[in-house]
């Protein structure tokens, strides 16, 4: 799980071109969208694409997205539970 969290931090910074944010600055329990990182609804859609491509996990509705993208932690848990490559 720790690895997944760290991996996601790097991927989020890369995917969203967050030039002024370093991966370590993303806190696992902080609000992910609409918070200090400046991540908005378009970014969420960009992350949806990345997550489907890299983890084969689909997040295809706004309602689901709101829950999954609440924090980095909720995102990692959802990916962990639903990714064919990661599920136990």
């Amino acid at each position: 799980m720790k690895n997944l969290l760290n991996e996601l931090k790097v991927k989020i910074v890369d995917t969203l071109n967050l030039e002024d944010v370093s991966p370590e600055e993303i806190q696992e329990e902080d609000q992910l969208v609409g918070g200090e990182l400046g991540i908005d609804s378009i970014d969420v859609l960009e992350l949806v694409m990345m997550i489907e491509k890299d983890y084969s996990v689909k997040i295809d509705s706004k309602d689901l997205g709101a829950k999954v993208f609440a924090t980095l932690n909720t995102l990692a848990i959802y990916i962990h539970e639903n990714s064919p490559g990661l599920a136990n």
Binding site: I42, D43, L45, E46, M49, E52, K53
Partner: peptide
């Protein structure tokens, strides 16, 4: 490159 599976919403906008 992704056989029409992946795109970038940011690039579309």
């Amino acid at each position: 490159e992704s056989d029409e599976r992946f795109t970038s919403p940011t690039d579309f906008i």
